[in-house]
């Protein structure tokens, strides 16, 4: 066999590898954010802080808001708290969704790790979480002043995500 023909083998592989490299930056599930550019789902619930205060989706109108889905049972949520506090320090309105949790546990969590939230929607059955298509906590949604979801952060907000992803998105929709 001609030797140079054999050289096509490594070259061919390099070609495939280039496609792999291209594919790395892309998210194959990118289309999954079905709620993108849709209104925040309608809901009716009480708050974690006050069992008598009823809130609904109008809560999120009028100002750009970050909605963070968390639970006391979720270890990544504890790690995420410093980043959420930092975002609150930037003057961003934060609303929590206390997801599949018990009231006293949720409150104890905020006492221990800090409370960046204006208020927390109490969602013990996970029904709001279901409407939001949450896979697991933590997840964060950016809702604009008209109550439309503009950004969805799946999973934990790393310290580097604050500057790199969250703040630019907030600025974009303010």
């Amino acid at each position: 066999m001609k030797r140079w023909l054999l050289l096509l083998l490594p070259l061919g592989f390099v070609g495939i590898a280039l496609f792999f490299y291209q594919g790395l930056g892309r998210d194959p599930t990118a289309r999954d954010s079905a709620l993108m550019a849709r209104a925040f789902p309608a809901f009716e619930a009480v708050t974690l802080e006050d069992a008598n205060r009823r809130v609904d989706e109008t809560l999120l109108r009028g100002e750009v808001t970050l909605v963070n889905v968390w639970g006391e049972w979720c270890p990544a949520c504890k790690q995420e708290m410093p980043q959420l506090l930092e975002l609150a320090d930037h003057g961003i309105r934060m609303v929590g969704v206390n997801y599949r949790d018990r009231r006293e546990k949720g409150r104890a969590f905020l006492d221990e790790y800090g409370d960046p939230f204006e208020l927390n929607i109490f969602d013990p059955e996970g029904s709001l979480g279901f409407d939001l298509g949450v896979y697991g906590a933590p997840e964060t949604f950016l809702v604009d002043a008209d109550g439309v979801i503009r950004y969805h952060h799946k999973g934990y907000i790393a310290p580097s995500d604050v500057q790199a992803r969250i703040l630019p998105e907030v600025e974009k929709w303010r």
Binding site: F13, A17, L24
Partner: peptide
């Protein structure tokens, strides 16, 4: 990917 690339490219090159 780098690991895969180095392994495969070098071994195929050696083969060629």
């Amino acid at each position: 990917l780098v690991l895969l690339g180095v392994t495969v490219t070098l071994s195929l090159l050696l083969f060629a």
